[in-house]
Write a protein that binds this DNA or RNA. Structure first.
Length: 575
RNA sequence: GGCACCGUAGCUCAGUGGUAGAGCAGGAGAAUCAUAAUCUCUUGGUCGGCGGUUCAAAUCCGUCCGGUGCUACCA
């Protein structure tokens, strides 16, 4: 048996505005959930944390536009994301909110520690201010004519037309993106800056120490920031919605300002843990300051700088023994039919629409089997249909049906006990001993594409065995020989349910019930955990009891037809 | 503009110095338990171009071309 470990898992926090697309899902929440399920199945003490990221200018302005307060706006979308997460089988120990009291409390704690330790300082910055709107505007909320190419809707941070980096003062005829008002001026504003530059050496040696267990996409992004020279970073903003800067920091010089969303968002990992611990009567510091915990983070590459620089500086600067991440798993982008998924452009497939097309488990398998781990990967409907039809419907689903239906037709739906396993079965057992271990090793390292490749290969091995055993031929002359094939086939089906549960929990349960009641144990939020199979395939594949009733399931995975592919392409073609 | 990553079979991707790989698609055959699902065999690539280092380069270096992203006030 594997050594029991304590594993802390966080997924990058989805921004609360709107429904997330499949690129967001595959880059953080889904791999975090699959990894957490795998850890739970292995019997490790596991804590999986996610939350909505609820602060920042976009929320405040979107709420303004809808005529509701930012709190109400965040409430609405948090509920939507919670439900969609549930529908996708994302089972967190806690799905929190960065606007929670716990996060307010902890964010202030970190800010005060940093202030006390001298890692924060006041600086005066120049910022765009809209007189009509009576508010400061983030650079990208100032629009005007690009001085380089003349594009008349350039944003204050960058011109989308010629891609040049801009400053709001560069714009000709600047105006507010909020109201269109032209009385935009530049004013002074005082802010707190985090002295990241003082941590450059410490960060570099920390990241160096992870070159062997973080992927190149992660370390190269981190080193890029360090190589360019770490700059101190403003951690406050002129907004109303957020965590207010308290008067005891800088003697009230920042009255009316809030912390920058990227300062408080990662702290929510800790705060959501605290909420969970408080509810369960345990201590969150066991997880965040405990020495025997391995901490995994999952995120898209856009989040990497904040998790390799910003958040670590917050932790290091606190002077307290908070855990730094041990294994940082970063993902590239999932592209949609050659272009990018875009929330603002409504391009691609979003979590709500996806479930109208296929069940959650089908998406979970497809997405993780094609996760953009080492490079950006590309989604097409043809590819999706091909994988669903071949891997899930044919190789896995059909295997379950052919075995269970044959048992029902020829052995009266009772698992046959006649005959003994011979050389064919022993060879299969030896092969699977190796393959199941390989699969587990890949999952243990969060190498999802390779893990899914091995999982699929295991299903193929089942089909190969059945072809050699050919119980449909044996039954005519040698009932015991046919019984051996069917018994092994059913044991394989049973094995598969245990192997696929982390990836496809509902399908695993459906198949398992066809063989026998699920003997799992209670897990998170009352969900039954189907545990990892026995390490010895000789035991695992001789586990079912002769005589037990087998009930063939209905079609497990519905195929996607060519006509549907055409229809989906037309429907989701993009803006 | 700067920087980073990527460019390998029709498609989706492995492979990072030692005789080019997998799955799918395509072709041939076997089987008929099963969602016509499976199994076996098989066609297919001068590894983006050019130049260099090396006994040896998809792999290292330079350069060019193409794609994507980031560029610190979107998150």
């Amino acid at each position: 048996m594997t050594v029991k470990k304590r594993i802390l898992i966080t997924s990058a926090l989805p921004y609360v505005a709107g429904v997330k697309h499949l690129g967001n899902l595959v880059g953080s929440m889904l791999p975090a959930d699959i990894f957490a399920r795998f850890c739970r199945a292995r019997g490790h003490e596991t804590l999986a944390i996610c939350a909505t990221d609820e602060h920042g200018a976009p929320i405040e302005l979107a709420a303004l536009e809808e005529g509701i307060g930012p709190r109400a706006y965040a409430d609405k979308w948090h509920a939507v994301q919670k439900k969609l997460g549930d529908d996708f089988g994302l089972n967190w120990d806690n799905f929190g909110r960065s606007s929670s009291p716990a996060n307010h409390e902890l964010t202030l704690h970190f800010a005060r520690q940093l202030w006390k330790n001298g890692f924060l300082e006041l600086r005066i910055t120049k910022q765009a201010y809209s007189v009509t709107d009576a508010r400061f505007l983030p650079d990208r909320y100032v629009i005007g004519t690009c001085p380089h190419c003349g594009y008349d809707r350039a944003r204050g941070d960058q011109c989308e037309n010629c891609t040049r980096v801009l400053d709001p003062v560069d714009l000709i005829n600047p105006r507010s993106a909020v109201s269109g008002a032209q009385d935009v001026e530049i004013r002074d504003s005082t802010h707190l800056f985090l002295k990241q530059s003082q941590f450059a050496g410490k960060l570099r040696s920390w990241i160096e120490s992870h070159k062997h267990d973080w992927s190149p996409v992660v370390t190269s992004i981190a080193f890029k920031w360090l190589d360019e020279g770490l700059r101190d970073r403003g951690i406050t903003r002129d907004l109303e919605w957020g965590i207010p800067v308290p008067d005891d920091i800088a003697d009230g010089a920042l009255k009316g300002k809030v912390f920058y969303v990227w300062f408080d968002a990662p702290i929510e990992y800790i705060a959501a843990t605290k909420e969970w611990a408080d509810r369960n009567g345990t201590d969150y510091l066991d997880w965040w300051q405990g020495k025997d915990v391995t901490y995994w983070e999952f995120m898209g590459k856009d989040n990497v700088p904040f998790h390799t620089v910003g958040f670590p500086v917050t932790i290091m600067g606190s002077g307290e023994p908070w855990k730094l991440v041990d294994r940082l798993k970063g993902f590239n982008w999932l592209n949609y039919d050659g272009g990018k998924f875009s929330t603002s452009g409504k391009r691609g497939i979003f979590m709500d629409k996806a479930l109208d097309i296929a069940p959650a488990d089908v998406w979970r398998y497809y997405l993780i089997a094609n996760a953009p781990e080492s490079a950006d990967s590309n989604f097409t409907w043809e590819h999706f249909a091909g994988v669903v039809n071949k891997d899930l419907a044919d190789v896995l689903g059909n295997f379950v049906l052919r075995v269970t239906k044959f048992c029902a037709a020829r052995f009266d739906g009772k698992l046959p006990g006649e005959g003994e396993y011979g050389d064919e079965e022993k060879a299969l057992i030896a092969d699977l001993d190796h393959r199941v271990k390989t699969y587990a090793d890949y999952l243990e390292n969060a190498e999802f594409r390779k893990a899914m490749g091995e999982l699929r290969a295991i299903w193929v091995v089942g089909n190969e065995y059945l072809t050699r055993a050919a119980p449909w031929a044996a039954i005519k002359t040698d009932r015991a020989k046919a019984a051996v094939g069917v018994r092994m086939g059913l044991n394989l089906v049973h094995l598969f349910t245990h192997l696929i549960w982390p990836v496809m929990p509902e399908l695993a349960k459906t198949i398992h019930r066809a063989i026998q009641p699920i003997g799992g144990y209670p897990g998170v939020n009352g969900e039954l955990i189907i545990p990892w199979p026995h390490e010895s395939m000789a035991q695992e594949l001789d586990d079912l009891t002769p005589g037990q009733t087998i009930a063939p399931p209905e079609v497990l995975v519905t195929k996607i037809t060519d006509e549907q592919v055409e229809e989906l392409k037309a429907r989701f073609g993009g803006a």
